[in-house]
Design a protein around this nucleic acid. Sequence first.
DNA 1: GCTCACATGTAATCCGTTACATGATTCT
DNA 2: AGAATCATGTAACGGATTACATGTGAGC
Lengths: 190, 190
Amino acid sequence: MELGNTSYLILGMLRKGPKSGYEIKAQADVSTRFFWAISYGQIYPELKRLDRAGLIEGVTDPDDGRQRRVYSITPLGEEALREWLTRPGELHSELRHEGVLRFFFADSLDHEERVALLRAMRVKHERLREELLAIAPGADEARGKGGNSLSLLTLETGIAYQDFFVDLCDRLERRLAETESETESTTGGS
Amino acid sequence: MELGNTSYLILGMLRKGPKSGYEIKAQADVSTRFFWAISYGQIYPELKRLDRAGLIEGVTDPDDGRQRRVYSITPLGEEALREWLTRPGELHSELRHEGVLRFFFADSLDHEERVALLRAMRVKHERLREELLAIAPGADEARGKGGNSLSLLTLETGIAYQDFFVDLCDRLERRLAETESETESTTGGS
DNA sequence: GCTCACATGTAATCCGTTACATGATTCT
DNA sequence: AGAATCATGTAACGGATTACATGTGAGC
């Protein structure tokens, strides 16, 4: 059976301990979301597929009345996860960034509109940064019991990533201001 | 008609001057590719759609014998592009990064394997950085005639973006080394 | 009693890549 | 003559989001 990176995300989450589909989503939303997002529409069908393939095992948890299916990773699943983690070759990565795309084509805008675009981009990444900072204490706490330092490092990576874009917007705005004042002095100012 | 960001990419490319689908792809490959990739499978059908909607206009270029359809942006298309560039609200952006994803789940690996993963990630971004540097002279030259400084700024952004990941890998490897030596001293060393 | 969080699932749809098919022209 | 590049297109497929549908339990 063909497994995609999303399948391994699920496998990886289950390796940290048995979980329901709902919990996988909740965990992913505060960890992998910023570099690999996942939705219910992928999780539930994929859990069934992985179960059929023997990589995970689901039991209907009669914990309380609430119907809930908890999955655990099997030795076969651990093996598959390990194979993926050490697999040589291309590490796929892609970015789709509307802000930078618009900026690239922003030469038909005037100076103020360009600046507005950069500001909008900046607040977006600032907000994402705040979101990550908000979940940081939880991850730090979890490190001792069960959690590992890699989750923390990855979280810090996410914060640094947002920082990059915030700084980028600042730098671009400054560069824009320089070019603008140059043009003004050349044409004699507005 | 509903237009996606990819439609605006095409519109934006045509605003820089009339082009064939083939040329749009070639231009995108040395500019937007790193933050918004595009393929022929999207371009050709989309060109027909945009033409039908009156946002662009195609003429079969009898330049030489080679069959070639060159599209130009119409005033309606320019308007649509401008509306998009100044549209308020969410700037969509998403990242899918297999390297960081693997790293997040790499606690089942041993130290050497983790380092190998970071190294693989590093060379990937270094290679991408080289690719961008290779196209930089062309963009710099084009700035004077027809090209604008925004393409150059965007290109520099792409380089800085790859730099971020190269630095990140270095930092993470160092952090890993620290944790590793701590563990060694705690357990009495290997 | 009501609302919110827990919980699971499916179907439609969208966006995009890859593979395939075809053919002309230019360069070596 | 043959290879590389220019050039256009379609069909199949894959990955993912969104909307929809449904129901329970906990806390206010």
